[in-house]
Write a protein that binds this DNA or RNA. Structure first.
Lengths: 140, 140
DNA sequence: GTACTTGCAAACAGTTTGCATAGGC
DNA sequence: GCCTATGCAAACTGTTTGCAAGTAC
């Protein structure tokens, strides 16, 4: 998911309709670098669309996932976060502030087979304390 | 979680009671290499304990997790799987048969800081087609 | 005997589904 | 005008919680 227009084009090609709600969800995903969950998107949208429902959000998120425009992160228990950045990278969850950070430093694990299992995708999740929370601790 | 007795000792030290239900859950975790979820454990236990409830299972799983005797795997959406093997290793989920396999091949990522974030734990999840499902496909 | 555990039910959170209506194309 | 998408409610899944009764120690 690079720019809004390319996503809209892809949706159109796949015969999906470009409703205002869908476009608003896509705009949020592109702008929001916090890896929002469905309910974070819902909270942001209900100002503009007071009638917005979760079915619309999940419907759109699942379409975008199937089209390969967003990635789902299983970094928290019982909750899915979404990342519009589909280039190979990984994630860090801060145990203090709960923020998710992108990690580019580690090279992508470029393996096609492990123990004769065919590898199609790989997700790396790091957990710890983010730079900002570390700094605040020292300030105490 | 290596052997039953060491886990029981640890529970006792932490002032937890050794109930038959708890011991049965621990036995299952030690024997079952499939990385069971709470409901898989429930299904196995209800033969022996027809009255078994999920609160007991989650209670015990959370205690064992806090004691560092089991690890929780966020490899599937909206479901937690548990692994009694707490030595550093990673996991593979087969998209065909749904089985979770242990992966020892990749060296543990031994980093303490990335982008100034303090790393306390790291989980690597691989997704693809397992050796067995690949073999069955070829047999077609 | 005391305090923790159990089992049940109910609550809860996140996600999915069914269906009548609205609206994109 | 057709057919998909929306919004609402209800269902559903996995997990957590409150509480009376049971039980390990």
């Amino acid at each position: 998911m690079k720019d809004k227009n390319s996503v809209l084009r892809k949706l159109k090609e796949a015969k999906f309709k470009l409703t205002p709600q869908r476009m608003a969800i896509i705009e949020i995903l592109i702008r929001d670098t916090s890896h929002p969950s469905a309910d974070a998107i819902y909270e942001k949208l209900k100002k503009k669309f007071p009638m917005m429902s979760y079915s619309t959000i999940y419907n759109t998120l699942n379409i975008l996932k199937d089209l390969g425009e967003i990635i789902e992160l299983l970094i928290r228990e019982n909750k899915i976060n979404y990342d519009p950045n589909t280039t190979p990278h990984h994630h860090f969850l801060c145990e203090i502030c709960g923020k998710i950070k992108d990690i580019y430093q580690k090279p992508d694990i470029d393996i096609h087979y492990i123990d004769n299992h065919k590898i199609k995708k790989c997700r790396i999740y790091f957990y710890g304390i983010c730079s900002n929370c570390l700094k605040n601790r020292k300030d105490d």
